[in-house]
Write a protein that binds this DNA or RNA. Structure first.
Lengths: 232, 232
DNA sequence: TTTCAGCCTTGACAATTATCAACCGTAGAA
DNA sequence: TTCTACGGTTGATAATTGTCAAGGCTGAAA
């Protein structure tokens, strides 16, 4: 594994506190690979052979059932995914595919479990990570069950605006069809939802979104830290 | 804390492997309390002062936003809840209330965090627990995003039947209005959904459900281990 | 026993969301 | 350049789900 990738992985909160020898043991047999866009990295139901780390690019976690499909999360650098499946030695619950050209580090799941059994500080870092993941999904669940699609979109845009630096105008960073899937609606409905938010001061031109009246939009969206704050 | 409760807590997978002195430190200042039905134990947004353990009875985890409310999970003995908030020292994302007369052990969150910092085997048990919780919510998310309400009900009933021993006829163990909330629908719609499943061999009389034609119901419900298996 | 409150059900209706088909624009290929 | 494929949009329509109001049933209190 190249030195830069090695350092990137090492600097993740999940790995930064562990002993050097633990980290070495972890990375034995690990490797980095470049993937083009739209490659399926893992398939739900498969056994978890590798813990994945997105070094660059982005990855879509999705799931299918009965001919339907839904996006559950987007993984951006630098972070891991499918940690829970790895540590439980259980089948993946979600599939993953690259959204763009991406660089992924693959760490043998066996190593993760073995090191985890011996290194308490790694176990502690894992707890922090998993608790965070868990809380994120709970928030997503609340978003989905308590809000209409229009409210979900409004809050998504406010969150995205903050993440993008808070400027009035910003770019959507994914295809609208995928955004629709993430928000739990159809592409057609997303189109209409964008128009439905115009009265609250929203302008959309392609992938460029402008919030002309943040106060009005927030009054409609009613963002709540217990749903919309990524950090807490 | 009474001896029996002490043992019940100790026997939980989360606590059974840790050293005796760690467990003692954990239980310092812990206590057991009996609550009547419908008591709000914790409120979302509050700081997490205690890790809760349901010893008997049952607890509803729910959340509210903008005048709406939804049930997210039911906790049955013997298990803990709000572990993630406790370990992250973060505010509760959900509220909790007793569904019936319940016996709850309360363990100071400070203890949990302190012991967790020192006892690697406790950290490892916590990882297993949190990974399990995380995967459960992912499954719930898939259930909600990939299925219609009728399909969710059908699969819920098949799951419940298995959990209840597999007999053709079994009792719903919660109020229908709460079941509706868990399944992400209104009580009125749940009523109609029950009728909507009659053609697939379902009979309902009050809280008693009879599956007269399991094959037919499964053909409709298309249960999937990656959504419906509690264990994997 | 009667009364009453709470849960469930039903019907009528409204809102939301999905589906289907058609069309527009753009970007890459021929 | 033209052609074509694809994502996005729009309109018409259907399916799903929610809301409101009314009524039935049951179990506890008077």
């Amino acid at each position: 594994m190249p030195d830069s990738a090695f350092k990137d992985v090492r600097n993740l909160a999940l790995f930064s506190q562990m002993a050097d020898e633990s980290f070495s043991a972890l990375m034995r047999g690990a490797f980095v690979q470049n993937f083009p866009a739209q490659i399926e990295l893992i398939t739900e139901g498969d056994p978890s052979d590798f813990l994945h780390v997105v070094l660059s690019g982005s990855v879509d976690l999705f799931s299918a059932w009965n001919g339907r499909e839904t996006s559950l999360a987007t993984i951006r650098p630098i972070s891991t995914f499918i940690l829970a499946a790895t540590v439980r030695d259980a089948p993946y619950l979600m599939s993953a595919r690259t959204l763009e050209k991406s660089r992924i580090a693959l760490i043998p799941s066996q190593n993760v479990r073995a090191v985890f059994d011996n290194d308490g500080s790694f176990a502690r870092a894992m707890v922090a990570e998993l608790a965070q993941c868990y809380r994120s999904v709970i928030k997503a669940q609340k978003d989905l069950k308590l809000r209409t699609s229009l409210e979900r979109l409004a809050n998504y845009l406010l969150r995205h605006q903050r993440r993008a630096g808070g400027a009035r105008s910003f770019e959507l960073e994914c295809e609208k069809r995928r955004l629709a899937s993430v928000l739990g609606m159809t592409p057609e409905n997303l189109s209409r939802a964008f128009r439905g938010l115009q009265p609250y001061g929203l302008q959309v031109d392609g992938t460029r979104v402008t919030i002309t009246n943040a106060a009005e939009l927030e009054k409609f969206a009613k963002p709540n830290p217990l749903i919309d704050d990524a950090t807490t």
